[in-house]
Design a protein around this nucleic acid. Structure first.
Lengths: 248, 248
DNA sequence: AAGTGGTCTAGACCACGAA
DNA sequence: TCGTGGTCTAGACCACTTA
């Protein structure tokens, strides 16, 4: 039936959203300009006001525009305020910044979970987990030590398959069909101990950024990662918006 | 006029949102339960379906529930799963954790902007900015030094009004009607220098978490904040999710 | 087939900002 | 005052899940 073709239809609010976003990104609307008012957009796209508003709200959520009651909807400097906070992998981030990323001392093994890790994974204290350990090098220089603790039942046989891994998240997605849905990072700092200092090639007591990441997939906690990062070589970036709505 | 009293009205969708959220948090709806269906909620709250949906979408955005077409709206384990990343003030976060928060050495003055700060604020190198400086105490113990650099034209006379300030963001909102729309944090670490160590009452060379925050309001960069936080007393938490919308 | 959420419309009234 | 965005309604039709 011909209808099947038409069937793959994109919601109108997404089309309006995409069209506006493209014009903002291409510079048709410039920084400080105001978008056409809502009644105008209704006519332009031939949709209802509800649909227009939904599209514009999406743009605002992503930081492309700022909606101001009584004034209008202003186009922002999207390079400065862009994007919600999405899950990103450490090595992918480095690669995007143009570094050549390699691993050293990659080890994967099944071990009893340390107590804190077991608690984060919601396992009994002595449950076994898969531990992946590595030193990450950016342009040949060590930049972080990473320990990943994974639930064994979701990554069977990982010890034998991990050799050529490029980034862990991509590996989990392609080999085990595991998509990371969400993550929480806890960030603190510490001074490097003797062994860490040696492996990271920095002086003892150098400040390190400590990141604990808990990742979720299919509604479950599936991984805890611990990163010790050389502080003067990496900056952790977080973008956030707005304030929580208040009720009551 | 009596209308002034009625005037402070809270939108209905926020009331519905607040009511549902309270019931989720208090455990009236349990993990894995489904919320009443939308027509049901309409009757319960006596509002239109649009209003119900808006409330439920808010809950979903914050990770309290998961909306599933054809099935229903499931209550999630809100302690474990993601919420959106909102701009939060350091002192508000501490207060929410139950600490008694005070400031010490609060100073506000107009000074030439340091070069890096001027660049972040998009000012010429020698432009003047308002610098607010303070040590923040949690339960009487120093936990961080904060420097805030503000555009002078948006906070006129702040030097004379700042005395009793409780949190800077609340202060800006109530006194200057400035709502923070977005922020970007850059997080690294460093070892405490002699003066910092003294003011924070920690040993020299102690690891400190360094946060640079750039905040936006009305589409402009309006503030740069630098925080030096005692690393073993505070953890920076980031929640992220996966889900860029696609158009085209 | 029945019930759930997903999209969309047309129209109403309110609140804020600028002239 | 006028134009902007903010909230809300009632009703329609579609798409997905489950039985």
């Amino acid at each position: 039936m011909l209808r099947c073709i038409v069937h793959a239809t994109i919601p109108r609010y997404l089309r309006v959203y995409g069209s506006l976003k493209a014009q903002v990104e291409s510079g048709d609307f410039k920084l400080g300009d105001f978008l056409p008012a809502e009644p105008e957009l209704q006519k332009l796209f031939n949709v209802s006001r509800t649909t227009v508003r939904r599209a514009v709200e999406l743009l605002a959520q992503e930081g492309f525009v700022s909606i101001q009651q009584g004034k209008g909807t202003e186009v922002l400097d999207f390079k400065a305020t862009q994007r919600l906070q999405y899950v990103s992998s450490f090595s992918e981030t480095l690669q995007e910044k143009g570094f050549n990323v390699r691993y050293r001392d990659l080890v994967a093994e099944c071990t009893p979970a340390p107590r804190r890790i077991a608690a984060d994974l919601k396992l009994e204290p002595d449950a076994r987990v898969v531990r992946v350990q590595r030193v990450i090098l950016a342009n040949g220089k060590p930049i972080a030590i990473i320990w990943n603790y994974l639930l064994p039942e979701i990554v069977p046989g990982i010890e034998r398959r991990i050799a050529g891994m490029k980034t862990l998240y991509a590996f989990l997605e392609s080999e085990y069909n595991l998509r990371i849905e969400a993550a929480t990072d806890y960030i603190s700092a510490k001074a490097a101990g003797a062994e860490e200092a040696a492996r990271l090639e920095v002086p003892v007591e150098s400040p390190l950024l400590v990141v604990k990441r808990i990742t979720y997939s299919r509604g479950r906690t599936i991984e805890v990662a611990i990163l010790h990062v050389v502080a003067d070589k990496y900056e952790y970036c977080v973008q956030s918006k707005d304030r929580p709505p208040r009720a009551t």
